[in-house]
Amino acid sequence: MNTKRIFVNLVISLVVCLIALQASAQETYYVQSVKAKVHSAPSFKASVLGEASRGTRLNSIGRSGSWLKVSYYGKDGYVAAILVSVSPPMAKHTMIKAGDADFQQGVRRRASTYTSAAAARGLAADDRRRLSGEDRLDYDGLERVEKYTISDAELTKFMEGGKI
């Protein structure tokens, strides 16, 4: 291969890298939170250009610490990076329903399964007692935790600074 060809290949490679890097620099992000304020500067003290709702696409044009610099209606804006992600928001995954036949079957099996797993791991009798005591499973408590809900109206009032 002659020198000229090597040079041409190098130039082409660099140009391709440049294009690829430029493309990756303008990544698309999606708002994951209920809403995300877009500030005029990377600061909570900066004025708010607007609020983007969940699922809004934002093109990033850089970053500054915990802030993502985005293009927002023709202006440069900043959104807290924790509120966005490169993937569109996923639908809410509901918990495994306690009435689910498979789940109930699993719970019934679990006590003996767990003990056999501990035994199979070669745990001594004292360790097995520890597992059945310290690490016992409370599915009734878990079900109470999972069933607890608060209404949207109550949450909205609370978030607005209202009393409990």
Partner: peptide
């Protein structure tokens, strides 16, 4: 409400 994982309850 301000989590980046809306798929979780």
């Amino acid at each position: 409400a301000y989590s980046n994982r809306p798929e979780l309850k």
